[in-house]
């Protein structure tokens, strides 16, 4: 099933759609990081979130409970990132010695 088809059926794409927009804000690839849903506790990579991007902003929802985990609004001169739906974000980094 193609991405376009998935969007037609479910109205959303997966969290990989956040990679480009979030790369404006962060030096790391946040889609590979793990987050925890504040509502149901489901933990997983940001890439597994359900992203509704045909909207005034990007709305990423938990695949377990539909809770809004992340919102990203891009204005002409700023990005608004709302992470109140997430307990934590774990970013894998190179081991320091």
């Amino acid at each position: 099933m193609t991405l376009r088809h998935r969007q037609a059926v479910h109205g959303h794409v997966d969290g990989n759609a956040l990679a480009g927009p979030l790369s404006e804000l962060f030096a790391v690839d946040v889609t590979a990081a793990e987050g925890r849903c504040v509502n149901c506790g489901l933990t997983g990579p940001i890439a597994t979130l359900m992203v509704y991007d045909r909207a005034p902003g990007m709305v990423a929802r938990c695949a377990g409970c539909d809770n809004v985990v992340l919102r990203l609004v891009r204005t002409p001169d700023a990005a608004w990132l709302d992470l109140t739906g997430m307990t934590w974000l774990r970013v894998q980094l190179p081991t320091t010695t």
């Binding site: 509704y52 909207a55 005034p56 709305v59 929802r61 539909d66 809004v68």
Partner: peptide, 9 residues
């Protein structure tokens, strides 16, 4: 009539 949605219908 574009359909915009922030979540499941």
């Amino acid at each position: 009539f574009p359909v915009l949605s922030a979540g499941p219908t």
